[in-house]
């Protein structure tokens, strides 16, 4: 789009002077807010707001058969929908490479940190609980990954497990009494992600959608419990040097508390 090119030049010119369009420093967040338990039908939910970006995460708990190679583990899965409501360029249809990437990065962070004790999700009758997180992007003004990760974590930390009644029939799935709670989903480890966009050689945190247009590439780092790298993903054509990557890891660790307080 021609407008994109105009914005790109504007953002890059500012960045050469060390400035951002909204006056923030390179490592500053926009105002952040998280609303928890926004819906009652799903077992957990949260909306994360990063400036004008709004990302919703809904958690449903289902009974499932365990995967054949993991009979002693429950199932955890993150999916992402870029709804057409969120941006003029988002189209309805099957997941595309961007929504798949976002979902998988958020999934990897939470999975690798063992946030959810999948072994605790096995039911007495040998069935398992499936924890399904669906990320819904409602308004895309940039930095969807970090907003999605924060919404997902906030939703998971406020997810109730419905009461399960095994079936009398051998081997059949039981049923949930969704109105009755069997306690909250246990979260063993807290995870946030920090995404840095590289514009004119400078890495900035919490980019807006306009800054993302001007960006050469992104590095997302998932940090668990304020110190561990549990997942990471480089996206876009930019390359990162070893030292640069390490300094961004340090920055992500330093920013951990600013996000973790919203769970």
């Amino acid at each position: 789009m021609i407008l994109d090119e105009v914005k790109e030049v504007y953002i890059k010119d500012l960045m050469k002077k060390g400035q951002r369009a909204d006056g923030r420093g390179a490592m500053d967040y926009r105002p952040i807010r998280v609303e928890k338990n926004v819906f009652s039908n799903c077992e957990g939910s949260a909306i994360a707001y990063f400036g004008d970006t709004k990302v919703l995460a809904g958690v449903k708990i289902d009974v499932a058969e365990p995967f054949s190679d993991r009979p002693d583990e429950g199932i955890f899965m993150v999916n992402a929908e870029f709804t057409p409501a969120a941006h003029p360029e988002f189209e309805a249809g099957p997941p595309n490479e961007k929504s798949i990437e976002l979902a998988r990065v958020v999934d990897r962070g939470i999975r690798a940190a063992n946030s959810i004790d999948v072994k605790s999700l096995v039911l007495p009758d040998g069935k398992v609980l499936g924890v399904f997180v669906d990320v819904y992007v409602l308004d895309h003004s940039g930095n969807l990954t970090d907003a999605a990760a924060l919404a997902a974590m906030a939703a998971l930390k406020n997810t109730r497990i419905p009461k399960y009644e095994p079936s009398a029939k051998q081997g059949a799935k039981g049923t949930f009494v969704r109105e009755e709670s069997a306690g909250n989903l246990a979260i063993k480890s807290d995870v946030i992600t920090c995404s840095f966009e590289k514009i004119e050689g400078t890495n900035i945190l919490d980019a807006t959608d306009e800054e993302e247009i001007a960006s050469d590439g992104r590095l997302t780092i998932a940090v668990a419990d304020g110190q561990y790298m549990v997942a990471s993903q480089k996206s876009g054509r930019a390359g990162f040097k070893q030292q640069e990557l390490m300094s961004l890891f340090d920055a992500a660790v330093a920013k951990y508390g600013e996000l973790a307080k919203y769970f």
Binding site: G109, Y228, M229, V230, K234, G239, Q242, L245, F249
Partner: peptide, 14 residues
């Protein structure tokens, strides 16, 4: 000296 693809999962210290 640039890293062009970088993915990781696990639990690593600095």
């Amino acid at each position: 000296g640039e890293i062009l693809l970088y993915q990781m999962d696990g639990k690593l210290t600095r």
